[in-house]
């Protein structure tokens, strides 16, 4: 792979007054890969995107796209779908497409037509009259029809029904198959689990998890012990360095284990549970472990 990252965010910090929205974030995205950015609301995802695209100024740190700072010419090869619509409400979809046709060399009218039909949109309707989901669809059509090398998508499935959420995922996969690099944020952990090579999780402006989906899943196991009666006190379990977190609910004890899951399973077996099982983690488990079980998930997860 090329030594130049498609996207390189290095030691990026953004402060608003005394509030630090993002703290020393470094995130490098390989060309041709799909990177999923997860995090609770307010964790700094949108701030990061805005600064990456030069729509806001970083307090410190550097942002590069294909090895250079973002400048107007960058947008020939980079499409951005913001979380909140940045469309002209008084213009129609047809107007927006015409604007794209004039502005982008690689604008593909045929592709745009396909996408308009796919999302079943009316071209003549003022964008301001469209639902939030339809506005998201318009932004996606504009982004994907210019055939960019890089796509930055801030919650691209928000406001869309499950059928169109799947369409968005297909668009992302298709673009990646064509060699595009995609950085997208989502609350839909299942989407990221399917599509992303790599996952980054932000919490309170800090990068707390960064790795390939496979390596993250491989790095932890759950050891679950089910007892006949109440879960017994197991000495030293919470202070065991091999264990990240222990969860007790009713007759079930669940230990999230960083290493030696078999050893932990043997240890729990000594307390004569009815059953002990070592289980793999899915990305949702990893996310909840990372951001803390007490954090309410934003609606629409999974």
């Amino acid at each position: 792979m090329s030594s130049t990252y498609a996207i390189a965010i290095r030691d990026f910090t953004k402060r608003y007054g005394s509030f630090e929205a993002v703290s020393s974030l470094t995130l490098e995205v390989e060309p041709g890969s799909i990177c999923g950015l997860l995090g609770p609301n307010g964790s700094g995802k949108t701030t990061t995107f805005k600064c990456l695209l030069n729509l806001a100024r970083p307090t410190s740190g550097t942002m590069q796209v294909e090895g250079a700072p973002v400048q107007p010419a960058t947008f020939e090869e980079l499409a951005y779908v913001p979380e909140r619509s940045a469309l002209y409400e008084w213009l129609t979809l047809a107007d927006h497409l015409e604007f794209n046709r004039r502005s982008y060399r690689k604008y593909d009218a045929k592709r745009a037509d396909e996408l308009v039909n796919l999302f079943r949109l009316e071209r003549k309707k003022k964008v301001g009259k469209l639902s939030k989901g339809q506005q998201t669809a318009v932004a996606l059509i504009l982004a994907f029809s210019i055939q960019p090398r890089i796509l930055v998508l801030d919650e691209p499935a928000s406001g869309l029904d499950p059928v169109f959420q799947r369409v968005v995922l297909d668009l992302i996969i298709e673009a990646a198959a064509g060699g595009a690099t995609i950085l997208f944020s989502s609350h839909q952990i299942g989407q990221v689990e399917r599509a992303a090579d790599r996952v980054a999780i932000l919490k309170n402006g800090r990068l707390i998890v960064d790795g390939t989906v496979d390596s993250l899943k491989g790095s932890e196991k759950v050891v679950e012990a089910i007892f006949d009666q109440a879960v017994p006190e197991v000495d030293g379990l919470t202070s065991d360095a091999r264990i990240r977190r222990v969860e007790r609910s009713g007759r079930i004890l669940r230990a999230y284990v960083k290493e030696d899951s078999d050893g932990i399973a043997r240890r729990l077996s000594e307390y004569s549970p009815k059953n002990v099982a070592v289980m793999d983690l899915n990305l949702e488990d990893i996310f909840i472990n990372a951001v803390g079980g007490e954090t309410a998930l934003p609606q629409g997860d999974r």
Binding site: R166, A177, R194
Partner: peptide, 8 residues
């Protein structure tokens, strides 16, 4: 596309 997973 068929499996909706990453091409890589």
């Amino acid at each position: 596309l068929d499996l909706t997973i990453n091409p890589n």
